[in-house]
Design a protein around this nucleic acid. Structure first.
Length: 607
RNA sequence: GGUCCUGUGGAGCAGUUGGAGUGCUCGCCGCCCUGUCAAGGCGGAGGUCGCGGGUUCAAGUCCCGUCAGGACCGCCA
């Protein structure tokens, strides 16, 4: 090392030692005869005192090496703000290791720069303490997860990133295969099938910090490539996986957030979560629960509600504490808010703060009796506002109220930002009805989780009887309204798997074509198994207190899938295009079992 | 694919009902300065107001389109 000490480590006890430091000029204060430089390295900052003429050339972010004696600062010149504030290094030698051009992005913790500039100069951004600490935290999180898992005899095993599509339902990223022109690899959306094969292979306890790829639109908590802490275990029940998940999460939060999670983490069924919070990832930092009014309002003459009730649907409400104080404009704003998410509107009633009298457009449509008992029915007080949602589809109405609940909490400032509220959402439904608009409204079933999720003991023999009610051994862990992980016990019996495929409308031929290798593996003594995958970027984002996963990714992409630093993606040359076989037609016959098929002749046919 | 917000020297922001010269802080360049720590003082350079079109006597400001960044819906666990 060309340094003897870390700048941030110097203390009063080091006084008298001669040290060599290497790092960056974080800030300089040039007094003419004496120059103070804050020298920053990975460990922190120390003040260097320079009296040499040639020190005047120093500029921000010059990379320098300094040798000198550590001395206590003169009486009264200590800086209690700095860990190293009691001492300074009086430079005897200064070497400029490399100069820095004027900075396009100030390396300054005070300045908030725009995302495009930060990402374009991410290496400068990372010199700032916030972004640097976010990556350090992520490294620590990785370490903690590995420790917990190795303590429990897990094996870290890597799986391919050039593979075929796994059935997660998102769009695949595709990679042309030069050796088999016209054929394509898919980047894995998750290592799902491989980890199940590892269980068949007797690995019993697998984990991987796995990069996953999904070609869908971005969000603050979504990137096209992202990371999962992926785990699978053999011979386990749902409780075993949940217990492991809690062990990991509680260790992470204890060591990185200073928060002791109370275990067991509460569990709520999926149906209860939808009924009480209108969400399958409820934020439990605040109350504001939904109330179902389907029975209460039965017989109402208000068409919107009556229609939903007669259709066997749902009417419900959520209360905004103090919401009656909102202006007409604010209340109208809720209508726009609801329309923006595809609802027709958001009916409401406000309760007069003095008299408790119900007012508002909807109040006129409700009978005196319904109005009289309304406040009690939904738990509202004078001065509150009550929002309603109704629909033939219970879930859509509940989700609208659930979204309103989140918005209410935000507008009414009901969220304790320092709180951590965890829960498991269990007993998720197996199937969801899908209507294929293009196929003339034909309806079928799709797997809520994925098609290898096991029905629970109650439903395993009869999920076909009422697919919409069948429950799975599937569980999600939720933190402050964010789904941070999810998993399931998998199907390991061929007959059950076949019945699930039948219900999903997957023909044996299709099943064979898409994941025949997994089904074949299951013929040879597949152990019962299950697992979980944590959305590692989200976990780290929450631990870092960030509001986007971009903050915990070293080199993230912008919303358009663009990397401002490397300017990827780029067009390819005609030669690359030809060689990659992008336009080649695959050989007509389906590729036989692996092994004997030679490389196909290149059928370059650029169109 | 849809809705919304933002775009003004290198960075962060201001710019009123359209009205003369687009302003501030930081940074940058030069000079001064021996105890600062967001050092200070004096002077200076640097701007196609994202881009294109339109309305107008006049556009940073209003309208249309487009590009880029962001938030959300759709999509995606």
């Amino acid at each position: 090392m060309i340094r003897t000490h870390d700048a941030g480590s110097l203390r009063a006890t080091d006084a008298g030692t001669t040290v060599t430091l290497a790092g960056w000029v974080a800030r300089r204060r040039d007094h003419g005869g004496v120059i103070f430089v804050d020298l920053r390295d990975g460990s922190g900052v120390a003040q260097v005192v320079l009296r040499e003429e040639d020190a005047h050339v120093l500029r921000n972010e010059y990379c320098v090496q300094v040798t000198g004696e550590v001395t206590r600062r003169p009486e009264g010149n200590e800086n209690p703000e700095l860990a190293t504030g009691e001492v300074e290094v009086t430079a005897e030698e200064l070497e400029v290791l490399s100069e820095a051009a004027p900075l396009p992005l100030p390396v300054d913790d005070q300045v908030e720069a725009g995302d495009d500039v930060r990402l374009r100069y991410r290496y400068l951004d990372l010199r700032r303490s916030g972004p640097a600490n976010a990556l350090r935290l992520r490294s620590a999180a990785n370490q903690i997860a590995r420790t917990v898992l190795h303590e429990r005899d897990f094996l870290e095993i890597e799986t391919p990133t050039l593979t075929r599509s796994t059935p997660e339902g998102a769009r695949d990223f595709l990679v042309p295969v030069r050796l088999q022109p016209g054929t394509w690899y898919a980047l894995p959306q998750s290592p799902q099938l491989f980890k199940q094969l590892l269980m068949v292979g007797g690995m019993e306890r697998y984990y991987q910090i796995a990069r996953c790829y999904r070609d869908e639109d971005f969000r603050a908590d979504r990137q096209p490539e992202f990371t999962q802490l992926d785990i699978e275990m053999s011979f386990v029940t749902e409780d075993d996986v949940i217990d492991l998940g809690e062990a990991i999460v509680s260790r992470l939060w204890r060591e990185l957030a200073g928060h002791q999670i109370t275990r067991p983490i509460p569990r709520i069924t999926w149906h209860e979560a939808m009924a009480r919070y209108g969400s399958d990832k409820p934020d439990l930092r605040y109350g504001v629960e939904l109330t179902e009014l389907t029975d209460y309002l039965r017989g109402t003459r208000f068409r919107v509600f009556a229609g939903a009730i007669e259709a066997g649907g749902y009417v419900g409400a959520v209360v905004m504490p103090g919401g009656a104080a909102q202006s007409r404009k604010e209340l109208d704003g809720w209508q726009d808010w609801a329309k923006a998410r595809g609802a027709k509107g958001l009916a409401y009633v406000v309760l007069d703060a003095e008299t408790g009298e119900a007012r508002g457009p909807v109040a006129k449509n409700l009978s005196t009796e319904h109005l009289a008992g309304l406040a009690d029915a939904v738990g509202a007080k004078p001065g509150d506002a009550i929002f309603f949602a109704a629909g033939a589809e219970s879930r859509a109405a509940q989700e609208l109220l659930g979204a309103a609940r989140v918005e209410i909490a935000r507008r009414a400032k009901l969220i304790d930002e320092s709180a951590w509220a965890f829960c498991w959402v269990v007993d998720a439904p197996m199937f969801e009805r899908v209507t294929d608009g293009e196929a003339g409204g034909a309806s079928g079933w799709t797997a809520v989780h994925h098609p290898f999720t096991a029905p629970n003991a109650e439903w395993v023999d009869r999920f076909e009887e009422a697919p919409e009610q069948a429950l799975a051994y599937a569980y999600d862990i939720v933190c402050n309204g964010n789904e941070i992980g999810g998993g399931s016990i998998r199907i390991h019996r061929g007959d059950v798997q076949q019945r699930v495929f039948d219900l999903l409308g997957i023909t044996p031929e299709q099943a064979q074509d898409k994941f025949g290798f997994l089904l074949e593996a299951f013929k040879y003594g597949a152990p019962p198994h299950g697992g979980i995958a944590f959305g590692w970027d989200r976990v780290c984002m929450l631990l870092a207190g960030a509001d986007s996963i971009r903050e915990v990714i070293a080199f993230p992409k912008t919303r358009g899938g663009f990397d401002p630093l490397t300017a990827a993606p780029t067009p390819i040359t005609a030669a690359q295009r030809l060689e990659a076989g992008v336009d080649a037609r695959p050989k007509p016959e389906a590729r036989a079992q692996a092994g004997t098929a030679g490389p196909a002749a290149p059928v370059a046919d650029p169109t």
